[in-house]
């Protein structure tokens, strides 16, 4: 296990270096930040001063080396636009995004799991068919479109929920959170639901598929034959078995959710990391883009690792195998 972890971490380190190079070159290739940032009436003298000030007068490889040597000391560069450390900017925005991502996962589980169970246990009822058709809609609807529809209906037409922004926050561990206030909760509901839409469908389908497969398994047949109550069979034998894929996929999805909250955050003006990256791309704030992408990569690596470990703990077969190798 320890060896396996060590090997994974080393591989991850290699991935990180490769990504930093790719991202750096990729970001470098797109546009010229000075053209975007500088006032249009600035003269050549001012332009050259700005280019030097931002370190853009060096050749690409030198810029990369400067970046790497600083990154090794924990400094991922300063934002061109905010003149603050990029990492600090991102960390400031991170709680808002995490809150949104976890909110959407909770919504996905609360809605998805019961519906999926029902659809799996009673596959031929009218209700199940509706649920499954609905889950396909959840996969098919583009996020941006649903987000704007939600705002149109619930904020503008009905006036039930605030349209955009984060609302009141309360401080916990020195960080402002929205979910601790009623106003904050009312703000988070729509964007979290919007972000959850895809995952609700995912959970429904995973649960249903899991239930259907498990119900055919011998041990479940045996449990039923033994005369155990259907409730007990469902919640002890079936439920346990389907949790593994649901946990795995949702875990993997967490990273995706955080990364893809870009669209939801843009639509709902949610001040998270996703909005920061879109704003940064719009003004070619290279240090922030690079720092953000690298943090996403790190996050994915960590999440994958955690999911692997959790998976090992949940499924004895995997544990045996990894011990064997």
């Amino acid at each position: 296990m320890a060896l396996y972890l060590l090997r994974r971490i080393m591989q991850s380190g290699f991935v990180l270096v490769a990504m930093s190079l790719l991202v750096f070159i990729g970001v470098y290739a797109v546009g010229d930040p000075i053209e975007i940032l500088i006032s249009p009436d600035a003269d050549q003298e001012e332009k050259e001063r700005a280019i030097r000030a931002l370190g853009l007068d060096l050749p690409l490889w030198q810029q990369y080396l400067v970046f790497v040597s600083r990154a090794l000391q924990g400094d991922l560069g300063r934002s061109f636009v905010f003149n603050e450390p990029a990492i600090q900017l991102i960390l400031q925005r991170m709680p808002a995004t995490l809150e949104l991502a976890f909110g959407s996962m909770i919504i996905a589980i609360i809605i998805g799991l019961p519906l999926g169970l029902y659809a799996g246990l009673r596959p031929d009822t009218w209700g199940s068919k509706t649920i499954m058709a609905g889950s396909i809609l959840g996969f098919s609807l583009p996020t941006f479109w649903v987000g704007l529809m939600l705002i149109m209906i619930f904020a503008v037409q009905l006036g039930w929920l605030p349209s955009t922004g984060r609302g009141d926050t309360a401080v916990l561990f020195g960080i402002p959170w929205s979910f601790l206030t009623i106003d904050g909760l009312s703000h988070i509901l729509m964007p979290a639901f919007n972000l959850a839409l895809f995952k609700i469908s995912l959970v429904i389908r995973l649960t249903r598929a899991g239930v259907r497969e498990t119900m055919l398994m011998d041990y479940v047949k045996f449990a039923r034959a033994k005369g155990l109550s259907p409730t007990r069979v469902t919640f002890v034998h079936v439920f346990k078995n389907i949790l593994i894929p649901v946990v795995t996929v949702l875990g993997l999805e967490l990273g995706g959710t955080i990364a893809f909250s870009v669209v939801t955050e843009t639509v709902f003006a949610w001040p998270g990391m996703g909005k920061l990256i879109i704003d940064s791309i719009n003004v070619l704030d290279r240090p922030v883009i690079v720092a953000y992408l690298l943090m996403i990569v790190v996050m994915f690596i960590v999440i994958n690792l955690i999911v692997d470990i959790v998976y090992t703990l949940l499924d004895p077969r995997v544990r045996l195998e990894s011990k064997g190798t």
Partner: peptide, 26 residues
């Protein structure tokens, strides 16, 4: 195998929208 699969990890570790965004910007 491990070279290809690390490449796969690399690819999957990168948010699709952001990757596509950068590729298209380029």
């Amino acid at each position: 195998d491990s070279a290809i699969m690390r490449l796969v990890d690399l690819q999957l570790s990168f948010p699709a929208i952001l990757a596509a965004l950068m590729i298209l910007a380029f």
